[in-house]
Computed example of a mutant assay.
Amino acid sequence: MSDTVTGSPVPAPFGAAIDSIHAATLRSELVVTELPAPGSLAPHSIAFAADVTPARHSDDSDLATGRFVLLYDPSSPDAWGGPFRVVCFAQAPLETDIGVDPFLAAVAWSWLIDALDTRGARYHSPSGTATKILSTGFGELQVQGDGAQIELRASWSPDDSALGPHVEAWGDLVCMLAGLPPVPEGVSVLPTRRKGA
């Protein structure tokens, strides 16, 4: 097996992580594709995109979309606390009345942590931002009216090469942002009502 970024031989721990990712079970509503991995962040990396169906050809989903990047650096950078680091992104449109909810960002972050814990992902050093975006169309975009989005950007360090649960948790997060049930007991979802629906 060779690394798609550098062409160099894949170290055994990174190869095990890739195998674990490919063995992950994701929800049927997700369309997942492998992307070119960033070559400047770590010696080895792999990246994926996910869209909640239905998605238009060559466009992000109207329901929710996400990106997942696994970085591997055998030198274990101090900031990572180990050789692996996951960087992910998830985004979904919302109704404006939901977008102004003062607890929305905290809820989105809690969904990520809950998804990681529910899937049994072993990790440490989580960090990230949850951003609420409110917009109003003007001029030719006035017909779009008001809109809102939630974006979650996060990273964490997996404790080992068992990355399947991490990818599954990320997939669960993308689906939760899209308002798709079912979810673990005690976790609420955003209403599926979307702008223009």
Score class of each variant (00 low, 15 high):
S2V: 05
S2M: 06
T4K: 07
V5A: 12
V5W: 08
T6K: 06
G7K: 04
S8N: 15
P9W: 02
V10G: 01
P11F: 07
G15A: 15
A17T: 09
S20K: 03
I21C: 02
L26G: 00
R27M: 04
L30E: 01
T33I: 11
L35V: 00
P36I: 02
P36W: 04
P36N: 05
P38D: 10
G39P: 11
L41M: 13
P43L: 11
I46L: 11
I46E: 05
A47V: 01
A47Y: 04
A47R: 08
A47W: 01
A50L: 01
D51Q: 09
T53H: 03
A55V: 10
A55G: 04
H57A: 13
S58F: 07
D59P: 00
D60F: 07
S61M: 12
S61G: 10
D62P: 15
D62W: 03
L63C: 02
L63Q: 07
A64K: 08
F68Y: 12
L70P: 07
L71W: 05
L71Y: 14
D73T: 03
S75M: 09
S76R: 12
S76H: 06
A79D: 14
W80I: 10
W80G: 04
G82R: 11
R85Q: 15
A90F: 05
A90D: 09
A90S: 15
Q91G: 14
A92D: 08
P93A: 06
T96A: 15
T96N: 03
I98T: 15
G99Q: 06
D101V: 09
F103D: 14
F103K: 13
A105C: 14
A108F: 04
A108I: 02
W111T: 00
I113C: 02
D114P: 00
A115H: 06
D117V: 10
G120S: 09
G120C: 11
A121I: 02
A121V: 03
R122M: 11
Y123F: 15
H124S: 15
P126L: 11
S127E: 14
S127W: 04
T129Q: 12
T129N: 15
T129A: 12
K132D: 04
K132S: 15
I133A: 10
G137W: 07
Q144S: 10
D146V: 08
G147E: 08
G147Q: 05
Q149T: 05
I150N: 07
R153G: 11
A154Y: 11
A154P: 04
A154N: 06
D159G: 11
D160W: 08
A162P: 00
L163K: 01
G164S: 10
P165C: 08
H166F: 02
G171L: 05
G171P: 05
D172K: 01
V174H: 06
M176P: 00
L180H: 02
V183D: 01
E185D: 13
G186H: 09
V187R: 15
V187K: 12
S188G: 10
S188C: 02
V189A: 13
V189C: 13
V189L: 15
L190T: 08
L190C: 08
P191V: 03
T192E: 11
T192M: 13
R193Q: 13
R194D: 05
G196T: 04
G196D: 07
